[in-house]
């Protein structure tokens, strides 16, 4: 186990932010802390980094109780949402910083920094200043800087939050590939469930300072522990008093066991898929079918149909 968080609680002022949180992060894994804003994920990350001290609980990194250690002693790399670039230093010097602090010989520093510049594709920009870089470039520099000192653990706090959507997607893929090469235990914080599902080996869903569920992306999506997790990870709709994924809603033109009646309001064609919006006893219902599905069933707006969750679908009681 690379990281063990045991029973960590933290409050700011009187407001509790983390409530008895315990998680394990395996060595070499890429774990996402996923949850809504204010749910405590950044605080948890900063507790692991040593930038915050928990009120209760312990943090064990590589078998050593690090709870009371300063960030300097912990050998963690940290990447901030707004880069925290050293504005007065060039890209080269930024990346070299940790090595210079450790008083490595100059030749070694030069070699290592160039290796990292290649890794993050910033070789041409080594002697520029952060102000002259784009957001995406700055974040890659921040990553190289954190990796330069060979941390045991790499922590990223909403690393792509300040970038626009296109750059975010590119860097997401790039981060995954980087991780596959470098194999550092990595934990990153995000509120974007698509990002978490795309990149992470395991996801920890954190809301209201509590762990809601831990598992692989597929596990969490297909077997959500509760209504909150289900709703956060993807779209849900209510059929027959139970929560179900729109693509798990079975539509039929004839009544069947366990099905309820619903009237089609609208069929929206979204290229690859179609969304069928209906009204039923549970209110507004949404089903998702593949392109042409509605036509195949020969249904259209105004028709009455019978719907029920698919047999193999996971359904949940709605939250109270």
């Amino acid at each position: 186990m690379a990281i063990q968080v045991n029973g960590v609680s933290k409050a700011f002022g009187g407001t509790p932010v983390l409530d008895d949180v315990s998680i394990d992060v395996g060595s070499g894994e890429l774990t996402a802390l996923l949850g809504p804003s204010g749910g405590g994920k950044s605080t948890l990350l900063r507790v692991i980094a040593g930038l915050e001290v928990p009120d209760r609980g312990t943090v064990v990194i590589s078998g050593v109780d690090s709870t009371r250690m300063s960030p300097q002693q912990r050998q963690v790399g940290f990447v901030f949402q707004h880069y925290a670039a050293f504005k007065h230093l060039t890209v080269f010097k930024n990346i070299a910083f940790g090595l210079q602090i450790r008083k490595r010989p100059r030749a070694e520093i030069k070699r290592r920094v160039h290796e990292l510049l290649e890794l993050v594709h910033l070789e041409q920009l080594a002697h520029r200043y952060p102000a002259q870089l784009s957001g995406g470039q700055r974040q890659r520099m921040a990553l190289a800087r954190a990796l330069a000192v060979e941390p045991e653990v790499l922590l990223l706090d909403e690393p792509f939050g300040a970038l626009d959507a296109q750059v975010r997607k590119e860097l997401r893929t790039w981060l995954r590939r980087l991780h596959d090469e470098v194999h550092v235990t990595t934990v990153f914080v995000t509120h974007d469930q698509e990002e978490a599902m795309d990149v992470a080996d395991r996801i920890v869903v954190l809301a209201g300072g509590r762990v809601e569920q831990v598992g692989s992306p597929t596990e969490i999506y297909e077997n959500p522990a509760n209504a909150f997790v289900m709703g956060f990870l993807g779209a849900v709709t209510t059929v027959g008093g139970r929560l179900v994924r729109p693509h798990d809603v079975e539509i039929s033109t004839t009544p069947a066991a366990g099905s309820v009646a619903a009237t089609i309001n609208r069929i929206v064609r979204l290229g690859f898929e179609e969304r069928i919006e209906m009204s039923g006893p549970d209110g507004e219902i949404m089903a998702q079918v593949l392109r042409g599905g509605a036509e195949q069933m020969r249904v259209t707006g105004g028709d009455m149909v019978w719907i029920r969750p698919r047999d193999d679908a996971r359904t949940l009681e709605p939250a109270r």
Partner: peptide, 24 residues
């Protein structure tokens, strides 16, 4: 934030002060 970053990179308080705060 720059000081926090310096801490995570291993810089003690004095080193951070001279290398990051003052130049800033």
């Amino acid at each position: 934030e720059q000081e926090q970053a310096a801490h995570t990179l291993g810089a003690g308080r004095w080193a951070t002060f001279w290398r990051i705060t003052i130049p800033g």
